[in-house]
């Protein structure tokens, strides 16, 4: 098991929505990301979007998938944002991003590894969600509702079915989803 870096408090702060910590992240890093994106075919709004999306990714990974930071936060987070922007540019078919060889030289191996791992996780999640969209509408409704905090009995009532039926149907829907993902992964 890898050692947890002392910067893990950033992730803890995100999970608990600790205003001070979240604000610290903005205060320390927003200008750097803004500058990078403005220099690379982006606007201030793009920078804001990338920054916010990366924080939500981190929050989800830390809260729901138990991500632990094994490297320093700053280079890791900046690398995450830069990669996200690079991917956005690729999608828009704009040729990217002025090299930051200089910055890249300063990034250590553990930061790269963790960023890559996170990116792989994100790609996996995207695949799962894409497959989810291919389920029938009823299945999508049943799964997404059963994952909210509401009582399952209440959800069954809202859907106009019995609790037993809801459970059975949810299992069936999850089963189809998993089979689709398996097939896609080959």
């Amino acid at each position: 098991m890898q050692k947890i870096h002392k910067d893990q408090y950033f992730l803890e702060g995100l999970i608990s929505n600790n205003h001070k910590v979240v604000q610290e992240i903005y205060a320390k890093f927003s200008d750097k990301i803004k500058r990078h994106i403005l220099n690379n075919n982006g606007s201030v709004d793009d920078a804001g979007d990338v920054f916010q999306e990366c924080l939500i990714d981190l929050y989800n990974q830390a809260k729901y998938k138990d991500l632990k930071l094994s490297c320093p936060f700053e280079p890791f987070f900046l690398l995450m944002c830069k990669r996200k922007w690079l991917n956005a540019l690729k999608k828009k078919a704009i040729i990217p991003v002025t090299n930051n060889e200089e910055d890249l030289l300063n990034i250590s191996e553990d930061v790269f590894l963790q960023a890559e791992e996170l990116e792989a996780q994100q790609e996996q999640s995207e695949l799962y969600l894409k497959m989810f969209q291919k389920l029938s509408e009823r299945c999508q409704e049943i799964i997404s509702l059963s994952l909210t905090d509401q009582h399952q009995e209440k959800i069954a009532e809202d859907l106009g079915v019995t609790y037993g039926y809801l459970r059975k149907k949810k299992s069936e829907c999850m089963a189809s989803l998993i089979l689709m993902i398996r097939k896609e992964q080959g």
């Binding site: 995100l14 929505n17 205003h19 979240v22 604000q23 903005y26 205060a27 927003s30 803004k34 201030v44 709004d45 920078a47 804001g48 920054f51 916010q52 924080l55 939500i56 929050y59 989800n60 809260k63 729901y64 998938k65 996996q124 999640s125 799962y128 969600l129 989810f132 799964i143 997404s144 994952l147 909210t148 905090d149």
Partner: peptide, 27 residues
């Protein structure tokens, strides 16, 4: 993964609202 996407509970919402307001401030 689905939980992180759909659970949309109170704390998740509060976190995202916090980001929206900080984004307005910093970007």
């Amino acid at each position: 993964t689905l939980r992180s996407e759909f659970s949309n509970n109170k704390t998740d919402r509060a976190f995202k609202e916090n980001l929206v307001s900080l984004n307005q401030q910093y970007f």
